[in-house]
């Protein structure tokens, strides 16, 4: 099990892989939290597309990260859920507070569009986002 990270603007993309059970979850949590704070990211995407097994420990991983990201005023997205993982997460009611996107790429677009919309809405002068790259669809 190794977790890979990608950073795009202020979004931390967490690429989870392998099996997530109670044993692995402890390490995964620590890795994500330290990376999130080291890079000072705001938003987070949890990409489950390469995960082959999850039990209810996965719920704890998602809920804990949701709280961390919320503290920083960021948004969190879950990407690449299998039908089976969706069932587990659905049981816990996670989807009532966390959005899902089909892929990490789609999640990045969604978060970027949203932050552009927020900036435009809040302050006309605050054009700091630079060139938003539209990475295709």
């Amino acid at each position: 099990m190794r977790t890979e990270f990608e950073i795009t603007d202020n979004i931390l993309i967490v690429k989870l892989s392998g099996e997530i059970d109670h044993h692995e979850a402890a390490e995964i949590r620590n890795e994500i939290d330290s990376t999130y704070s080291v890079f000072g990211s705001k938003h987070m995407i949890l990409d489950f597309s390469q995960v082959s097994f999850v039990d209810s420990s996965g719920i704890g991983v998602v809920m804990g990260r949701y709280n961390k990201v919320k503290e920083k005023g960021g948004s969190i997205l879950i990407a690449g859920c299998s039908e089976y993982l969706r069932t587990i997460l659905f049981l816990s009611g996670i989807f009532t507070i966390i959005e899902e996107s089909a892929s990490a790429e789609e999640g990045i677009l969604l978060l970027k569009q949203r932050s552009v919309a927020e900036k435009e809405g809040e302050e006309e002068t605050g054009k700091t986002a630079g060139d938003e790259k539209d990475g295709g669809k």
């Binding site: 704890g60 709280n67 587990i88 049981l91 816990s92």
Partner: peptide
């Protein structure tokens, strides 16, 4: 019961038996 846990809510989801049952 769903969501019941004796552990810390941050780490434990309290969904183990619910997952087994489903």
């Amino acid at each position: 019961r769903p969501l019941f846990t004796t552990g810390s809510p941050e780490e434990r989801s309290g969904m183990g038996f619910t997952v087994m049952e489903s």
